[in-house]
């Protein structure tokens, strides 16, 4: 089965629930995702949260972010695009495993759930482009 779905959402914490529902809806299309669906939804939501929190510093904006979910050749690929502050990949550090403090967990979760995480800053019409992949 091949999946190619995309949607744009306002950059706002209130969009996170809609993003989760979009991801759940898309991942429900194939039984293959049944055991990992909740984890992948969490990874997508954490990435979207990072856009709201870090690329836009939690400030209200009229911008949108784009979420694309593609499944082809047993690879699930999630592309997230935004027009916020350019991400400096070297500055993104997940929480250390024994460092018990609030914050940094989202990136840690994404790394635990997905097989590969790539940041790009040259997306056409966008500023940041995050690519998450998971193989099935």
């Amino acid at each position: 089965m091949t999946i190619e779905e995309h949607r744009e959402f306002p950059v706002d914490s209130a969009s996170l629930k809609e993003i989760r529902n979009f991801a759940r809806e898309v991942l429900a299309k194939d039984e293959l995702f049944s055991s990992t669906k909740d984890d992948v939804v969490l990874a997508i939501a954490e990435a979207a949260q990072n856009i709201v929190k870090h690329a836009y510093s939690g400030q209200p904006t009229g911008d949108t972010m784009r979420v694309e979910i593609t499944f082809k050749d047993n690879e699930l690929k999630i592309d997230l695009y935004d027009k916020g502050k350019p991400v400096i990949p070297e500055n993104i550090k997940p929480r250390q495993i024994d460092d018990v403090k609030p914050g940094g967990l989202g990136t840690f979760f994404i790394g635990q759930i997905m097989d590969e995480v790539i940041f790009k800053t040259s997306a056409t019409d966008w500023v940041n482009h995050l690519i998450l992949t998971k193989n099935y």
């Binding site: 954490e46 949260q49 914050g103 979760f109």
Partner: peptide, 13 residues
Amino acid sequence: QYMDSSGISVLIE
């Protein structure tokens, strides 16, 4: 039914 890293941060705090 769902908790993300922000919710976990509330538990830690």
